[in-house]
Amino acid sequence: MAQQERATRTRAAVIDAAAAEFDAHGYEGTSLAMISKTAGLSMGAVTFHFASKSALADTVQEEGRRRTQAALKRATNHSAAALETAMRVTVELTGLLEREPLVRAAVRLVRERPGSDVWSDIWLPSVRELLEEAHEQGHLHSDAQPADVVLLAEMLTAGAEVYLRTRLGSGARFDSASASLERAWQLALDGIAPARPLADPASG
């Protein structure tokens, strides 16, 4: 039993090290030697669990998918209105990206490895369904088509990832990406242009 537990811990350490390297350097910029060094394990210990960098990348992507699905379930597992829930999904996923290098690594690997599923395919269908429901309930402006709001949700979430990538490695303090996304959503809901002032009768 102790040997099995040790093997499980070693495998987890390899996956975490791989995620850190893939997140920082991408697929092409990462080697098994780098992963071995980051994990503090011999190359033999790494290849005992994963025969190749490709196999490790597959595992990181699959674990990233699993954690994303869990976050999606958390965000939708309540009785809030559909529009609020759609927003909550994007905020929850942004928080996930902020907290977990493994998820950021999975998202980066999806972009860099041909044939990989798109990360947004995991959660965007749920957001689309929620926004269509919000539209049917009359909770969207009459000029706001669900497809356009879905695109807004996708672009805001993608922008949050870029925001994180440009700041996490800088060492500088920065605002929480999920909190910033909530504020961006509020701006979108409230509108950023002031209401047109009434004409001054004296000027007519």
Rank of each mutant, 00 (worst) to 15 (best):
A147I: 13
T30P: 04
F22W: 02
V103H: 01
S79C: 04
E129M: 14
T166L: 14
D121N: 10
R128V: 12
D175P: 07
R183W: 07
A86R: 04
R11T: 13
K37S: 00
A153R: 07
A2H: 13
V14T: 04
P197N: 11
V150F: 06
R11C: 10
E112P: 04
A39M: 03
T94R: 01
Q137K: 14
A179E: 15
A193C: 12
A7Q: 15
T30L: 01
L41F: 02
S126E: 14
E63Y: 02
N77W: 03
F22G: 07
L181P: 12
R108E: 07
S126V: 15
L189Y: 14
M1P: 11
A81V: 09
A18C: 05
V91Y: 03
G29I: 01
S52H: 04
A160S: 14
A71K: 04
W123E: 10
I35Y: 00
E182K: 05
T59H: 02
E112V: 02
R9V: 07
L130Q: 12
A70G: 06
R74H: 07
I15V: 11
N77T: 06
S180L: 15
E112D: 01
A75D: 02
E5A: 15
Y163W: 13
G159M: 13
V14H: 00
A13S: 14
T94V: 07
Q69D: 06
D143R: 15
E132H: 14
G26E: 03
